[in-house]
């Protein structure tokens, strides 16, 4: 099965903090309309990859091609305008602002007519009805699942080409995790490409078209979910060498 032409193409990315590289020579691609997972144990460097790609930190080497343009080293605030959204780890919403203000700030990078802003808000409210109920509440008062929905909605409202999600299921109950994935399905149907970093490996593999596995800051395996599930690599990367049973 061939993959679609890449919309986000990361080549030989090296990144880290201060002098110490956390990820070294990672290459991965997200095809147009594809959902791709980046998996790996804690501390493997997944979040660092996302932070370097989205421009929160400056990559130390390699290329990041977004729609064919090398954007490595471009700041996060500028990359948002080019159609790349990054939903960071840990529900990074503005807790003191209201839900609606949070969504409004999701549009900070685009200038739209008042009517269009309203239309987009309604669009998000129909995708996440709970947010409409809570529109004027402070975002910090929402429950964990609702905060996660808000964070995703804030990224979607500006209609990005690619969304990178960093552990959206973190700390959520299974039923809520299922809800997150249902939403992600709907988002994919709208044609948004997705790069997903996740801990819930099996559920993620069910969802994505393709997956990469990193360990110790390096790529150790990639393939379709079926291929990865067959190999023992995933289990090893997450659980260590020990056999459980």
């Amino acid at each position: 099965m061939s993959r679609p032409e890449p919309i986000l193409d990361i080549r030989d990315l090296t990144a880290g903090y201060n002098a110490i590289p956390v990820v070294q020579g990672i290459s991965l691609a997200v095809g147009r309309g594809e959902a791709v997972a980046l998996l790996g144990a804690n501390g493997a460097g997944k979040s660092t990859v996302l932070r370097a790609v989205s421009g929160l930190i400056r990559p130390k080497g390699g290329e990041v091609l977004l729609n064919g343009e090398n954007v490595a080293g471009t700041g996060a605030e500028a990359l948002v305008r080019k159609g790349l959204s990054h939903v960071a780890e840990g529900r990074r919403i503005f807790r003191k602002l209201s839900v609606e203000d949070n969504l409004d700030l999701g549009l900070a990078s685009v200038s739209l007519s008042r009517a269009e802003v309203q239309r987009r808000l309604e669009e998000q409210y129909s995708l996440f009805p709970i947010l409409k109920q809570k529109a004027s509440d402070a975002a910090g008062s929402l429950s964990g699942g609702q905060q996660q929905m808000l964070a995703i909605s804030q990224a979607l409202i500006r209609k990005p080409d690619v969304v990178m999600l960093d552990e959206p299921s973190t700390g959520l109950a299974p039923i809520l995790i299922e809800e997150v994935f249902t939403k992600l399905d709907q988002i994919r149907e709208q044609g948004v490409s997705i790069l997903l970093v996740e801990q819930v490996v099996e559920r993620s593999l069910e969802f994505v078209d393709y997956a990469y596995l990193i360990q110790g800051g390096r790529l150790i395996a990639q393939g379709s979910p079926a291929e990865l599930q067959k190999s023992n690599a995933v289990k090893q990367a997450y659980m260590g060498e020990v056999s459980i049973r």
């Binding site: 929160l56 700041g75 996060a76 948002v80 960071a88 503005f94 700030l105 900070a108 990078s109 990224a155």
Partner: peptide, 22 residues
Amino acid sequence: RIGKAISAVSEDRDGARLNGIN
């Protein structure tokens, strides 16, 4: 929006950047 953006920056600088706020 600019006022809200300032509040956003005071709360979470990186979070603001990810929404295209400089």
